[in-house]
Simulated scan of single mutants.
Amino acid sequence: MSTDFQQARAALGARLRELRFTAVGGRLTGTQLASRLGWPHSKVYKLEGGQQTATSEDLRAWADAVGQPEVFEELAARLATFEFHIRSWRRQLSAGHRPVQDSWNIEVDQSKVIRAWEEAVVPGMLQTADYARAVFLRYADLYGTKRDTEEAVRARIRRQEWLHQAGHQFHALVWEAALHALICSPSVLTSQLDRLAGMIGMDTVQLGIIPLSASLRIPPANGFWVLDERLVIAEDWHAEVWLEDSDNVSTYLRIWRTLRESAVFGADAQAAITRAQRSVRPR
């Protein structure tokens, strides 16, 4: 499903195509423009098709290459409208959880390396269907939104196919508290913990657990994901925040790496999961 973010990116792409068609000296083909810019021609078509977000430098180079440097300010203003994009939960979930999952799937499919930090829940890429169902139902109750739970669960589980594709890397950091949080039934949490344990050692997944006893350089805060060092999706109670500008992406990468310093991996991460498994008692 289309989102405001994707629509804005597509609109910018259409404007870039228009400038190529009306270049000073005559219309340029995508290949001709790419040659002027020293880019692969695929980059031109991805930018025009709204499949890739231009940087400010890309826009300036494009304006110069089509002989219209004066349009750079207009293009930069368009870019600024979606570099920082707040998507309120109430508006997003008005149509249910499935469209939100579809939007995530689009971005995940375009990514090769994903870094995630979750302080209260197991990351969606590693959830069982039952655990995901419980999470969706909790939020549907909180916001009083449409219950399309089964469609949302299928969409989230489908995203996990990404983990089984060569060349992908998922680096997840989870606070140990999330392993104990009974946002679902004890039996569902037990199965979820078994799944987490099984992910340790998978070649496309690196799972780090920050123990409750760990010394922290910064306070753990709300969860966020960094996709290919190009996009940050951060969650708060009122909204998701999508960030693409390089300064914010760099900040979140620095936060993620700082949190990672307190994490344990491999056998030590397995021990943290085992502690949680022992604490869960079916009721």
Results as ranks from 00 to 15, higher is better:
Asp4Trp: 01
Ala8Phe: 02
Ala11Ile: 09
Leu12Asp: 14
Arg15Glu: 15
Arg17Ser: 09
Leu19Trp: 06
Phe21Asn: 13
Phe21His: 15
Ala23His: 08
Arg27Ile: 06
Thr31Arg: 15
Arg36Asn: 12
His41Ser: 13
Ser42Cys: 05
Gln51Asp: 13
Leu59Pro: 03
Val66Glu: 08
Gln68Tyr: 07
Gln68His: 14
Glu74Asp: 15
Leu75Tyr: 02
Phe82Glu: 02
Glu83Trp: 02
Arg87Ala: 13
Arg91Asn: 08
Gln92Met: 07
Ala95Lys: 14
Ser111Trp: 00
Glu118Arg: 00
Gly124Thr: 03
Gly124Met: 10
Arg133Trp: 02
Ala134Pro: 07
Arg138Ser: 13
Thr145His: 04
Ala155Val: 01
Ala155Trp: 00
Gln165Met: 08
Leu173Gln: 06
Ala181Ser: 13
Thr190Lys: 14
Thr190Ala: 14
Gln192Ile: 04
Gln192Leu: 10
Asp194His: 08
Leu196Tyr: 12
Ile200Val: 15
Asp203Lys: 09
Ile209Thr: 02
Arg217Thr: 02
Ile218Gln: 11
Trp225Met: 14
Val226Glu: 14
Leu227Thr: 11
Asp228Gly: 03
Trp237Pro: 05
Glu240Gln: 08
Ser246Pro: 03
Asp247Glu: 12
Arg257Ile: 05
Arg260Thr: 13
Ala267Thr: 11
Pro282Phe: 01
Arg283Trp: 04
